[in-house]
């Protein structure tokens, strides 16, 4: 059996991953139970009020994730907010090259730090939508019965629009995750050094090249390559 050694780079600390998944689960519960009130084929989920209960339970979790993040890892939250709203010329350059990035290429982009311009915008919009969706949601929840038609329409419109923004962002988020094999970042916490070099070379350069930031993993190379990777690799190589 042959072995291969890969270098992995620590991208997310356990607390960050925990916050991410709590937030993600709450978000999807909210999305599904919320869509039940917008999309008729899902309306049966709303009957009887179970979805309303779930929506509110998930809403509490969703609302509290920033607090959870602050408690577990205040520095991480601070960095996230600061980075999300700090933009440089490189970011503009990066955005110009976004179409290419969207279609799977990174080499034409200016080298990026820990967070690229796309992620910054994603984070910034997520933070802003967090406030609009939570605010309108709380108004709908706590003001129930005294909103009046105008209040209801304004609040639900803001809520729906915020939801749409967050949902579209999430679609993109998942898309890029799978295009660029970024999932391990949020499961194990590590990305391959190769990924870090392609996507965030400045950040990689800024890290000390020692554990826990960079680790080496020795793994067995399978005897027969995985069926649909092999042709791809062949194709790519050829």
């Amino acid at each position: 059996m042959a072995f291969r050694t890969t270098r992995w780079v620590l991208r997310y600390r356990p607390s960050q991953r925990l916050v991410h998944w709590v937030h993600a689960i709450a978000f999807f519960v909210l999305l599904l139970t919320g869509l039940a009130l917008i999309w008729p084929p899902l309306s049966f989920l709303a009957a009887g009020g179970l979805s309303r209960l779930l929506h509110r339970a998930a809403a509490v979790v969703f609302l509290l994730t920033p607090v959870l993040y602050a408690l577990l890892d205040f520095g991480g939250l601070r960095d996230l907010v600061r980075d999300s709203f700090t933009y440089t010329r490189e970011d503009l350059e990066w955005l110009k090259g976004f179409p290419g990035y969207f279609l799977g290429r990174t080499s034409h982009l200016p080298p990026q730090g820990r967070i690229n311009a796309g992620q910054k915008i994603h984070h910034a919009l997520t933070i802003l939508s967090y406030f609009t969706i939570s605010g309108s949601g709380l108004i709908l929840w706590l003001g129930k019965g005294s909103l009046g038609p105008t209040g209801l329409l304004i609040a639900t419109s803001i809520h729906d629009l915020s939801m749409a923004i967050m949902a579209v962002l999430t679609v993109g988020h998942i898309y890029f995750t799978f295009v660029y094999d970024a999932l391990p970042a949020m499961t194990t916490g590590y990305v391959t050094e190769e990924y870090a070099r392609m996507e965030h070379p400045l950040w990689l350069a800024s890290l000390p090249s020692e554990p826990p930031y960079v680790i080496e993993v020795r793994e067995a190379i399978p005897e027969t390559p995985e069926e649909h990777i092999a042709p791809l690799e062949k194709e790519a190589a050829g």
């Binding site: 969207f102 279609l103 799977g104 290429r105 990174t106 080499s107 898309y175 799978f178 295009v179 660029y180 190769e194 392609m198 791809l232 690799e233 790519a236 190589a237």
Partner: peptide, 15 residues
């Protein structure tokens, strides 16, 4: 887009 991007990404990565 996934299929295009994924293929192109792997091309780039393997390249």
């Amino acid at each position: 887009a996934f299929f295009i991007a994924r293929r192109r990404h792997l091309e780039e990565k393997n390249g």
